[in-house]
Structures are given as C-alpha cells and as structure tokens.
Simulated assay, not measured.
Amino acid sequence: MTIEMRELKGDDIFTLLGIVGKLGIKDEFIQLFEQNVESNVKTPQDHKKKEPTKAQKEKLEQEAQRRGMEAMAGLLQKTLLNAGKLKDDINALLSDLTGEPLKTIKNLGLKEYTGLIIQFFKKPELQDFFTSIASLLQ
C-alpha cells in the first residue's frame, strides 16, 4: 500500500510547533540559534558596501542550510526516541497529511508506517522551514 503525502501548508506549523514543544528540544534550538548569531558577528564585510561579499553570502547560506539540516536530524532523533509520548500527535499529523482516516494510519504495517515517517522528514518544505529558522538570526 503506497500512501502519498500532501505538501506542508502554513497551517501545519501549529501542529509542528506542538510536537516540537512536547519533544523538549528548546535548549537545542536555542544553542543552534546562538551559534548562528555568533557566526554572523564574525563574518567580515566588504569595506565599500558594508555587507558580506558574494562568496561570504554563499558561505552563510550554506552554513544556514547545514544548521537547518542538523536541526531537522535532531528533531527526527528526538521524535523517534519519544514516539510513545507523541503517538497520538504523530498519527493525527500523518492522517492529516495523507488524507487517510486515523484508524488506517494506526493499523498500517511497521514498514508502511516507518516509510511515512521517513517520507515526512524528507519533505523539502520541512527542510526549508528549518533552514529559514536557522537563517533568521544571521
């Protein structure tokens, strides 16, 4: 059985924030953002334009993307470690994203269920979300 997942929408942020809140990873996110601020302060600037050079901007963008990926990987790890506490939230999110009834999601085989979770964490919109958050504090 192959279940397709829709794109994430702006309204999904509230569900995601609820799950992130239950994961208790606030300290990890604060540390990530503090690293962003520290790296921005150390970035030399073009003396004439008073802004980073093209090469420096590219490096900053790559760094923000790397930090976003780190945050996403941390979120995946915490989600899997706390799956029991988040079971209802995760099932509801997967049900919403796939359009499948909650009962169908709960009764999926282990392979299909794990596949959905992996599919969710591979969504480009989720990566973009974390990259955007990481770049906010540059």
Rank of each mutant, 00 (worst) to 15 (best):
Y113R: 07
I90F: 01
G68I: 09
K49G: 08
I133V: 15
I118P: 00
F121H: 02
E51D: 06
G109A: 02
E112I: 00
R66K: 15
D89N: 11
F121T: 00
P52I: 04
E70D: 13
K123V: 02
L76Y: 10
K85V: 07
T53K: 07
L126K: 05
G109H: 00
P101I: 05
D88L: 08
K85Y: 10
K122V: 05
L94P: 04
A83Q: 11
K103V: 12
A92R: 09
N107K: 09
I117P: 00
A83E: 09
L108D: 06
E100I: 01
L116R: 00
K57C: 14
D128F: 04
F120N: 00
G99S: 06
N107Q: 10
K106W: 01
K78Q: 12
K111C: 01
K106L: 07
N107A: 12
Q62W: 03
L102T: 07
L76R: 14
P124R: 11
L110P: 00
I133D: 06
R66T: 15
Q127S: 13
S132N: 14
G74A: 06
I105P: 05
E100T: 05
L94I: 06
E112S: 08
A73S: 09
Q65G: 03
D128N: 13
L75I: 10
P124K: 14
D128M: 11
G74W: 02
K59V: 13
L81C: 07
L126G: 01
K123F: 05
K49H: 10
E58V: 09
F130W: 09
D88N: 12
P124V: 08
D88K: 13
K54T: 13
S95F: 01
T131G: 00
L80F: 09
K123P: 00
A92H: 07
K103S: 11
L93P: 06
L102N: 06
E100N: 06
E70G: 00
Q56P: 04
E70V: 08
E112K: 00
E100A: 15
T114H: 04
N91S: 03
L80A: 13
I118F: 06
A55H: 04
E51H: 02
I90V: 15
P101V: 08
L76I: 03
L116T: 09
D128A: 15
L110D: 10
D88P: 03
L81V: 08
L81T: 13
K106M: 04
A92F: 03
M72I: 11
N107G: 09
E112V: 01
K59N: 12
S132L: 09
L116F: 07
I90M: 10
Q77L: 13
L102E: 12
Q119K: 14
D89P: 06
